[in-house]
Nucleic acid binder design. Structure first.
Lengths: 230, 230
DNA sequence: ACAATAATTGACTAATCGTTCAAAATAATA
DNA sequence: TATTATTTTGAACGATTAGTCAATTATTGT
């Protein structure tokens, strides 16, 4: 009396369970990384929150680095998914940009507790680092092209797209540093506020010009190299 | 033949030398912290760049934490100084805000290699942490009040000043993550671009309103707690 | 040149951490 | 229940690290 359907179900159930546990580990790790950084987080820290022992982690992941990689990979996939969803929208470019901004804030805060934040990039070694950087670049290019398209269409003014993207993503990545779940702001409120500021800057008619005052950059001791400047 | 002036000069020279060395250590540490984080940086890392041994560091600083504290304190002093300088300027509020932004970028990149970045706040213990947070809050309050003043004067539109400040400072703090000295952008270019975007957003006539699309926030697995959600 | 002070060293420590693994516990299957 | 496959454990390892300190070297003042 072979019951392939039942047997299959049991197997998939197992696989699913393992998959869920992997994700739980990622969430725990991401939260810890965001708080104390990659090197400041011990495998025991990660395990403790899940009522596991650190030995068990090695059943699910090869080593600590693979956990960090999986965190990045997981949230970058969501972020690239956002890009696709937004581009599929039937909406003007400014609205698309606003939605992508809000979506990015959402991933950063809800999906893996700002894992992309704990971006101790230096902690990943060559092969893994390359993969992550490739994905991140794909997203950044998509975002830049959205901005450029807006400029071409005449709804955005001309800006240095690279710097603008760095500014926006930096602002969003930093949220994980001050955000506390249950605090005054939720992901939607932050997303709306950030998108508003960024998009309305691009929609504003003209550059804000100003002179950089003298007191900047002429400070004490920059040159006082002691054996040498690092 | 007592020569108080000479003796005094020699003494001050010594003090000065020690002070310089302390600063050199801070710069080395700040660079390392920015690259690999507080916990990822060893005392030997800090010493090595200065052709010292780690033992010597303890002649200048009590422990690693004090170095981190000094980094924060040093750059926060500069940042508070910026605030004063800008407030002393004879210029309209929008220009003041732009200058403060550019000045902040400058401190972040030139003064201590983005040390405020390595903001492993969690690495500081209570008494030191309190001092740093107090100073940082003083700066943030000053920045918020600048924005509010602009709104009162009618040159800025109404925004959530707290979120706006978080956004601006986050964007600036993040620069240290991608900035490379000698690269395409210098502190002035970045400062001008960031100030332009931020200020022109505040000067833009009206909010950019949009609806948050459905695909945001309804993603897979948020709920799949495995023993529990972290 | 000599004494006194300041600065540096390098070996040592106690603790922590990432990783391994054989054994034990748990769950699934027949 | 007996057998097998899956998962967890906890002890043990080698490596690294922050911090200490007595001894050494460099600098300064007389």
């Amino acid at each position: 009396m072979i019951q392939p359907s039942v047997k299959l179900k049991a197997e998939t159930r197992r696989k699913l369970k393992t998959e869920r546990k992997r994700e739980a580990i990622l969430r725990s790790a991401a939260a810890a990384f965001a708080q104390k950084g990659y090197y400041g987080t011990s495998m025991e820290d990660i395990a403790e929150r899940l009522l596991m022992t650190k030995g068990s982690l090695y059943y699910y992941f090869k080593d600590k680095e693979e956990i960090l990689f999986a965190c990045h990979d997981y949230s970058l996939n969501l972020v690239l998914d956002n890009l696709e969803q937004v581009e599929a929208m039937d909406a003007p470019t400014d609205e698309k940009l606003a939605c992508l901004t809000a979506a990015h804030v959402d991933v950063m805060l809800d999906a893996l507790q700002g894992s992309a934040m704990a971006l101790d990039f230096s902690a990943l070694s060559e092969p893994l680092l390359k993969k992550i950087i490739a994905k991140r670049d794909r997203f950044e290019r998509g975002l830049r092209s959205l901005i450029k398209r807006g400029t071409d269409e005449g709804i955005f003014r001309t800006v240095d797209a690279k710097l603008a993207v760095f500014m926006l993503l930096g602002a969003i990545n930093w949220i994980a540093k001050w955000y506390r779940a249950g605090g005054s702001y939720d992901a939607k409120a932050i997303g709306k506020a950030y998108a508003d500021i960024f998009v309305s800057a691009l929609k504003s008619g003209k550059r804000f010009e100003f002179e950089i005052p003298d007191f900047i950059g002429q400070r004490n001791g920059q040159d006082s190299t002691y054996p040498f400047a690092p």
